[in-house]
């Protein structure tokens, strides 16, 4: 039975949910790493890692890295680009 929606419709409707699930998976892996003991050798863990190889880095801050991957970059000269004086300069100007 064909899906009664186009792929674009599915993506439009489920993008945030997919995104949220990826974040949950990343935090779950971090949680496993932070817990005492080890699941190395557990076949379930191996299956999960194989199926989700895109998430299988060895970093311990996967969730943060994935968040940053989804984030616009921060540039510390943004106030200059906006031609905005800093609050400190504004106060100096007004006194």
């Amino acid at each position: 039975m064909p899906l009664p929606m186009t792929s674009n419709q599915v993506l439009d409707r489920e993008f945030l949910e997919i995104r949220a699930k990826i974040l949950d998976l990343a935090a779950s892996f971090d949680r496993l790493d932070r817990a005492d003991g080890s699941v190395v050798g557990d076949p379930r863990q191996s299956l999960v890692q194989e199926a989700l190889s895109v998430l299988s880095s060895t970093q311990k801050d996967r969730a943060e890295q994935i968040q940053l991957l989804f984030s616009h970059h921060y540039e510390d000269d943004w106030q200059e680009k906006f031609n905005l004086p800093s609050a400190a300069k504004l106060r100096t100007r007004s006194t």
């Binding site: 968040q67 989804f70 984030s71 943004w78 800093s86 609050a87």
Partner: peptide, 20 residues
């Protein structure tokens, strides 16, 4: 929200920390 959060949070902290 979402992709704007990191950049916006850093900008907000800049403005707050600018003001003693």
């Amino acid at each position: 929200h979402l992709e704007d959060k990191y950049q916006g949070t850093r900008m907000i902290l800049d403005m707050l920390c600018d003001d003693s």
